[in-house]
Design a binder for these strands. Sequence first.
DNA 1: AATGAATGAGACTTCATTCAT
DNA 2: AATGAATGAAGTCTCATTCAT
Lengths: 190, 190, 190, 190
Amino acid sequence: MAETEDSTRERILAAAQDLFARHGFDATPTSKIATEAQVPKGLVHYYFNRKPDLLTALVDKLPSEHVELGEVVVDGDVCTSLCRFVDRLDRNLDGSSLLSHLLWREADTHEVVRDALQARYRKMVAQIGEVITAASRHRIAAERISAAAALLAHALSFRHSMARHDGGAGHGDGASMDAEVRFVAEALAS
Amino acid sequence: MAETEDSTRERILAAAQDLFARHGFDATPTSKIATEAQVPKGLVHYYFNRKPDLLTALVDKLPSEHVELGEVVVDGDVCTSLCRFVDRLDRNLDGSSLLSHLLWREADTHEVVRDALQARYRKMVAQIGEVITAASRHRIAAERISAAAALLAHALSFRHSMARHDGGAGHGDGASMDAEVRFVAEALAS
Amino acid sequence: MAETEDSTRERILAAAQDLFARHGFDATPTSKIATEAQVPKGLVHYYFNRKPDLLTALVDKLPSEHVELGEVVVDGDVCTSLCRFVDRLDRNLDGSSLLSHLLWREADTHEVVRDALQARYRKMVAQIGEVITAASRHRIAAERISAAAALLAHALSFRHSMARHDGGAGHGDGASMDAEVRFVAEALAS
Amino acid sequence: MAETEDSTRERILAAAQDLFARHGFDATPTSKIATEAQVPKGLVHYYFNRKPDLLTALVDKLPSEHVELGEVVVDGDVCTSLCRFVDRLDRNLDGSSLLSHLLWREADTHEVVRDALQARYRKMVAQIGEVITAASRHRIAAERISAAAALLAHALSFRHSMARHDGGAGHGDGASMDAEVRFVAEALAS
DNA sequence: AATGAATGAGACTTCATTCAT
DNA sequence: AATGAATGAAGTCTCATTCAT
């Protein structure tokens, strides 16, 4: 009945992601997921024993947060390097900002999700620090780097975590993010 | 008697806040709220007609986000001014970080909550801008101010929105927040 | 809606007893119990949190297995004493033979039930022994008494445990039970 | 290959018996049977079309209840004859007491099972009567024989039907069964 | 012959909400 | 004003059974 076993499973997962993002995990009945995925109700539980397993599977779908430093670092140009880094992250995240958003929301109540997101966050902070270090020609005080990394990571994560509150919080489309990145970069340069 | 009624209502609200924070809005039955508040089940709906009304009432409990500029601005010292501003905000928020946190989580699915939080966010951005302008002796480009305000507001909001993920992501406690504020202030000064 | 709160609860319990007896515990949906008791489905779980709680409540409905020795013992006449004892037990059990039967069936898988029935069984053996001792004028060897008690208790319990297999196993209506009691009594007399 | 098929079928049946005995027929999913038997799920329904067919097949596995009178009767010694008869029955039943037990439990709701067990019961009563008649040198009143047979059959069946409640009710292990048999035999002798 | 993905009816249970008192 | 019994819609999950391969 399934076109491909994989595609059926994927369709369920996609439906879950969509509905979780729109209405929240708890507010989404598995039956609605089945309907949206156009599969019989039982199949959802055939592939994902319990409802939270859908969340686990969704976590695994998060795109790699890894960015090759070499691809973004421009020697001597912290600003461009950071911009490219942010850009690359965004491209990685691609259409997954909704996914990222819904996961942040469920992080409190689902350990698996929380752990995964915290790991990603830590990696992001570390990578920003590395980009700054690699791009800058003169040494920068460790504490300044970490402050800058924290600021940018906050801004990035918050932006994703608020991805759905469009047009409301002024949380920045790409442009305003650039402005902030530039602000940080210039601060580091001085 | 009026006092008793009030305190009963408060007890229900406090229980709701606690349980919503721990398990989420949807995962918290009104009956549990009644139990935790040690009131009969019917009373919850007597005071708060529908369950979402509890959320609305919780929004109203958010402490004022308004900070008197005069109380924090130190003329000529952007850094100290911002630090005091952040400090004041934190003190306002006091024990309400859990409240703030749980509200962020429900913002997606409850318009009332979303609107309230977005208003607070915008006000925060505006106030940071005002603090910077008021404290700085020389004029700063508008775009730099708004970038700085956005950065700090992001950081602040993200911190609150993650209040529960303590000890995990290494996202700022007071100290690291200070470092970031200082970073921004110095950037503006140069 | 309930005539008396008690009577509603009782009606549910009666329906459960009836259906459990006819189809077994596992094969009886709570919804059917509600239908048979003419109450809404939710009420079953309002009174009995979980389905097995119905079984527990049923165990409590078992009539007292206690028989006053003074009421049945005829000095010097073991046979009559035992007959009256059995008769009294039967009258106690009254219409509850179905109940007793269904409980025996569920004893394996429900500890509460098993414990209650085992206790009743032990008490029955003990009481038979007491009746014999009290009714007999000459001393009887302890081992003969216990063998007699075991035989009768087996027969009694088996009869109840098979109450439903009517007309099939030849497990005795009152008459054949009398014959067996008399057999035992005469054996003891000789 | 035929051998393999057979042993596979047997493994399924053994698993079913084990699980039915432990959890009851209704509480045992066919999938668990497959798991326990280490066969793919589809195979259970391949060999046994419907779930109740497993019960039917289990009934057929009951060991013969037939005992050759010549092998147990000792002329003039009713007691020994009966003891040997009981002993032989027990040996026939061998490891099947669990099977017998679980079948008793399902007898109410499964006609096939009920009929089979009732037939066995009737045969047991008849055989006990035959043993008594054959072993006794003097004639015994028919009613006494049937009372004795009923008592012993009750005791035997009850013992099997309670096979699982070990250590609890103190109902006979082999020893106490012997005491009861002796009691009956002596009663008949007098 | 053998398999396991697929199906959908239906089981148990929870819960917001109502309402008579 | 306050209560808690009552309601029934809806949710999660299980499972016997089918069937294409």
